[in-house]
């Protein structure tokens, strides 16, 4: 079995977002780049599955659409334990274009299980994995919070309103994963970092997939009015304010 994990390169989630002076772009200078948190959990789960598979999972590959600047993030994924990496050489214009590029790059590679994070922490699109499944004409399961491989069967928990479903699927399948899929992302070891330098990172030429959407303008969130403080010994005043001022209860 061969597993593929799709990796997005995003600003650290603690980044304070600054806009360019014309507000037509986000100022990404001095940003610390990381593996998208959901993709990192997907990679962690893929590695756990491989390690406990007794050799039946032969490889965990990663793929990314981006320019050379994101290779540090890909090397980190290799240091954590991915076996090889592909970088499709194109700016990631939108989810549609990214999914199209990934589909073109992997359609003949016979991956049995493809893992994608449920969203990226930058543009919060929640689109790429489902689009990839449609481009590849593959089955997919979204909102996956647990994934086990039992013989030929892939068992997944899909989160639904108020609970979850247990789903049985066969390879090939795309799992779009969220919180719960793995507990703690891994930290690369010194040995992992050394080994990652020798692992293959293949640059794949882009096919020129077209984006359908474009971010054109940004505005900062409106500044919030100061918090109204209430004395700790007078909680009835809070109830009063919620009722008469905020009119929310």
């Amino acid at each position: 079995m061969k597993i593929l994990v799709c990796i997005s390169n995003v600003p650290d989630t603690t980044t304070r977002i600054k806009l360019s002076s014309d507000q037509n772009a986000i100022d990404l200078s001095n940003v610390q780049w990381i593996i998208n948190p959901w993709d990192e959990l997907a990679l962690t789960r893929a590695l756990e599955l491989k390690e406990s598979s007794g050799g039946s999972i032969e490889s965990v590959s990663i793929i990314h659409v981006g320019n050379a600047g994101s290779e540090a993030t890909l090397r980190k994924a290799l240091a954590i334990g991915a076996d090889d990496a592909m970088r499709v050489d194109a700016a990631p214009a939108d989810a549609y274009a990214v999914a199209h590029e990934i589909a073109e790059a992997v359609k003949d590679k016979n991956f049995d299980l493809i893992l994608c994070g449920i969203e990226s922490s930058d543009y919060n699109g929640s689109a790429m994995g489902g689009m990839l499944a449609e481009f590849l004409n593959m089955e997919s399961v979204s909102s996956v919070s647990k994934l086990e491989i039992e013989g030929a069967e892939i068992k997944l928990n899909r989160e639904i309103a108020g609970g979850y479903e247990v789903i049985a699927a066969q390879a090939p399948v795309i799992a779009i994963v969220q919180k719960g899929i793995a507990i703690e992302p891994r930290i690369p070891s010194m040995r992992g970092i050394m080994m990652a330098r020798k692992k293959p990172l293949v640059v794949v030429p882009a096919t020129g997939a077209k984006a359908l959407t474009e971010f054109v303008h940004y505005t900062p969130p409106q500044p919030k009015a100061a918090c109204k403080m209430i004395a700790a010994d007078n909680p009835a005043e809070l109830v009063n304010l919620l009722h008469n001022e905020a009119k929310i209860i």
Binding site: N124, E214, T219
Partner: peptide, 16 residues
């Protein structure tokens, strides 16, 4: 829409 989980608002043009 919001981006960066509400740290900024964005206008998205859908060209299709």
């Amino acid at each position: 829409k919001k981006v960066f989980h509400g740290k900024a608002f964005a206008d998205v043009v859908v060209g299709s």
